[in-house]
Design a protein around this nucleic acid. Structure first.
Lengths: 105, 105
DNA sequence: TTAACTTAGTTACTTTTTGTAAGTTAATGA
DNA sequence: TCATTAACTTACAAAAAGTAACTAAGTTAA
């Protein structure tokens, strides 16, 4: 294997992990709680937990704990995560232009 | 689960499938043969075959057969595929800005 | 003071997807 | 007829994802 840009590869490794796109889409709208994302997305708690942990480790997502009752934990995009906005918006635009009604039914 | 844009979901389903990003990255550079992509990317023939078939079905990649000896088959981006260029370029830009040297070693 | 409630997860187990390496096909050319 | 070449396929093992039930910590109601 020859030279593929290693940074691009690493970026794709993160972004193309299953559910990451949808999680970012949710968070671009503002910070969200675990249960909120779980009910908004077709993803199980197990994987949502996995992905949020991974995105936190990658510095893309921040985890904020509020010691209320019951405990409130909010996930939001870091600056690094927020700067993925153009990527997600381009995907949205492409989808609007090229994904037909029939394809999504 | 509430309303997530179904077109966005479908787009992510395609783009975030493993190896698809790297395959598109390769093809944005011009049309390529099977063996060429196989040696440029860290992907096995089995999955490359799978993905190209899927991308062809989605209308993103064209498969062109040249009846020479030995047979030459070239894969290229359709208009639909070519219009993913901004997405891939944004990912490249994000990677350059946010993926550090250490992360890729 | 103990039983129940709430959010945010985790565990155990099954199914699907991926990785790996060897094998197949079709069209020459020696 | 046997070897060569590109483009795949197949068979099987390993990793990731799907599902549903369970746990933990703090609080409140009986």
């Amino acid at each position: 294997m020859s030279e593929l840009c290693p940074r691009f590869e690493k970026a794709m490794q993160i972004i193309s992990k299953r559910w990451v796109g949808l999680i970012l889409f949710e968070l671009l709208d503002g910070s969200k709680r675990f249960s909120e994302m779980e009910s908004n997305l077709p993803i199980s708690g197990r994987l949502l937990s996995d992905r949020l942990k991974m995105l936190e480790q990658e510095g893309i997502v921040d985890r904020n704990i509020y010691s209320e009752f019951p405990v409130r934990i909010e996930y939001s995009l870091s600056q690094k995560g927020e700067s993925l906005r153009p990527v997600i918006e381009d995907i949205q635009n492409w989808a609007n232009d090229w994904i037909t009604h029939e394809e999504v039914e």
